[in-house]
């Protein structure tokens, strides 16, 4: 496949083999291919060890694949860049800066003047509900608020693609649900392409317009779904969607799928 004349994100036959220091190797990813049109929201789900974080790190440009390549809007990804923003699980904020300085980090690094980024940062603070917290050091915020700063920091840079590595993984259930709503709202308002890694089936179903389930050893794409829930989430309340029969049916289907994979790994020992 030629990635040179497409817009959007293309992961082209990517394989990743880690060689272990003691000899031997781990096949983290095998022949993963997928493409994502501009503005799509893809969630990636899978049991631990299925290579989903490796895949995200390759798209972000932190790792070079052993085989294959990643293309964004026709050019090959060779390293991290501002066009691909990243939201980490937690602890990736700069604790020596206040909230506003964290959010404006990208624009400031690119040499933009305060006149350019000032209004934008104020607007983002407003959107993520931290209007009165701009001058607070980030370590004084709760976990949920910190992740909202991380989202805003990523958006301030106006990237083409937003990569999220379990951004809500460390939050309590209630905060997590609220944040899912925020992610949907931001997706709608900004029209960004989003790739979201998660280990929560519910989150993957609710947020993913498309959902990829990965299988481990070697990490590969197991199944792909097109889902209506993210679109519905823009108008219907998340509680209602998550309680609907269609949602529950899909959730159970995927849960048993992952359950089976885990059993395969364990050799049925958990039975």
């Amino acid at each position: 496949m030629d990635g040179a004349d497409r817009s959007g994100l293309l992961v082209d036959d990517v394989s990743m083999v880690f060689t272990l220091p003691g000899g031997g190797s781990v096949h983290a990813l095998k022949n993963v291919t997928m493409n994502l049109a501009s503005g799509e929201l893809l969630s990636v789900l899978g049991p631990s060890g299925c290579g989903k974080t490796t895949l995200l790190n390759i798209i972000a440009g932190f790792l070079a694949p052993t085989e294959g390549a990643v293309f964004l809007n026709g050019h090959q990804v060779t390293g991290p860049a501002a066009e691909r923003g990243m939201v980490f699980q937690q602890g990736a904020l700069f604790e020596w800066l206040d909230v506003r300085k964290n959010i404006s980090f990208g624009p400031r690094m690119m040499g933009k003047s305060k006149r350019e980024w000032g209004p934008k940062v104020d607007h983002l603070l407003e959107i993520v509900g931290l209007k009165d917290f701009g001058d607070k050091p980030v370590y004084q915020l709760s976990g949920g608020m910190q992740q909202r700063v991380a989202l805003a920091r990523c958006l301030a840079n106006d990237p083409d693609v937003i990569l999220m590595d379990e951004p809500l993984g460390a939050l309590d259930a209630l905060t997590r649900e609220k944040m899912q709503g925020l992610v949907l709202q931001l997706w709608k308002e900004t029209g960004k392409t989003i790739v979201l890694i998660t280990h929560s089936v519910e989150e993957a179903l609710f947020l993913g317009e498309r959902l990829i389930v990965m299988a481990p050893r070697p990490g590969r794409i197991h199944r792909e779904y097109h889902l209506p829930f993210a679109e519905q989430g823009l108008t219907i309340s998340p509680r209602e969607i998550k309680a609907s029969p269609e949602f529950i049916e899909k959730r159970e289907e995927i849960l048993s799928m992952i359950w089976e994979m885990e059993e395969e790994i364990m050799g049925g020992a958990t039975q």
Binding site: A60, F62, G79, P80, A81, A82, R84, G85, M86, F88, Q89, G91, A92, L93, F94, W96, F105, G106, M109, M110, R153, C154, N157
Partner: peptide, 27 residues
């Protein structure tokens, strides 16, 4: 320094020198 902070800075468009000055040094 936590590698995610360094990664975050590069993803926000920082250069090596900027990562040194704005992430590694304060950290």
């Amino acid at each position: 320094v936590k590698i995610s902070k360094v990664h975050a800075a590069y993803s926000l468009g920082a250069s090596k020198l900027q990562v040194l000055k704005n992430v590694i040094l304060p950290n």
